[in-house]
């Protein structure tokens, strides 16, 4: 079975045709449990997310701030395995029909085997992978496997990326380009980095791929602000925080899912306002 890169591209194109940005939500697999995590990702799509990224929890999440570190830690202590992550991707896609990507640090994929990981991810209907610590220079093995199995390889670009590097990265990336709004780790911020719009412009100059912006976006106003210049808005920590809050308050899963649907709905309205 081939992966769903075409579905991903189609959903991004459809959002563009509606003159809006796409909404991309992130949650780590296995958080708070594998089954509840599946329900949570489905709720995000029901609430208005167009695309979902499922994180592969890692022991050493160097690019994540405290919120996602906490969620990863809960998932790992709960015993989440790579097989559970792949199962989550498949279940969320099957329940919603939406494109579902996997976001993961490179070592788990390297250890599992790039070919095997791509094959298994495609087999459950996954759309692609975001590998934030795999620079383009080290990515040939993964890209070959992803291409064979119809998966997108989404590269992250940063405000510090020079134009010639942007060109080198977007030349081999697929699906979309993940533009980091600021220099830093994941987490909500009071304001979205001023460098984001310039980075999107510089990235567009090198590619026809959609450019989605992530890092720091947590509410409808910020989503609208980013939607004014980007093809997609990526939100992670704010969703994770909703689930952590529900957990902290001793609420049941339904309360957490309602909170996720609510936030997704607000953000979905935001990406349709375009600042």
């Amino acid at each position: 079975m081939s992966g769903n890169i075409e579905l991903l591209s189609g959903v991004l194109a459809a959002a563009k045709a509606e003159d809006r940005a796409a909404l991309v939500g992130y949650l780590p697999a296995g958080f708070p449990t594998v089954e509840d995590g599946i329900a949570a990702a489905v709720a995000m799509i029901e609430g208005g997310c167009d695309i979902v990224e499922i994180g592969l929890p890692h022991s050493d999440p160097v690019l994540d701030g405290p919120v996602i570190q906490t969620a990863d830690d809960i998932a790992l202590r709960g015993g989440v395995r790579i097989a559970d992550v792949i199962r989550t991707v498949g279940a969320v896609h099957a329940a919603t029909g939406a494109p579902v990507l996997c976001m993961t640090y490179w070592n788990p994929v390297d250890r599992y085997g790039a070919e095997r990981f791509a094959e298994d991810l495609a087999a459950v209907g996954g759309a692609g992978c975001i590998l934030p610590d795999l620079p383009v220079e080290e990515s040939a093995v993964w890209r070959a496997a992803a291409e064979r199995h119809g998966l997108a390889t989404v590269f992250v670009v940063a405000p510090s990326s020079r134009d010639e590097r942007l060109a080198k990265i977007t030349a081999v990336g697929s699906g979309f380009v993940y533009a980091a709004s600021l220099m830093g780790v994941t987490g909500t911020r009071a304001s979205v980095g001023a460098s984001a719009e310039a980075l999107v412009g510089r990235t567009r100059a090198t590619t026809g791929l959609p450019v989605c912006v992530g890092l720091g976006v947590s509410n409808a106003e910020q989503a609208a602000e980013v939607a004014a210049f980007a093809d997609g808005v990526i939100v992670g920590s704010a969703f994770v925080q909703r689930l952590l809050d529900a957990r902290e308050a001793g609420q049941d899963l339904q309360a957490g899912l309602n909170a996720l649907r609510g936030l997704a709905g607000e953000l979905a309205a935001g990406v349709r306002k375009r600042g």
Binding site: L63, P135, E138, P159, S161, R165
Partner: peptide, 12 residues
């Protein structure tokens, strides 16, 4: 060896 780092650190 190699250089497995996020894009944000490549320039540095």
């Amino acid at each position: 060896g190699g250089k497995f780092i996020p894009e944000a650190l490549v320039a540095a």
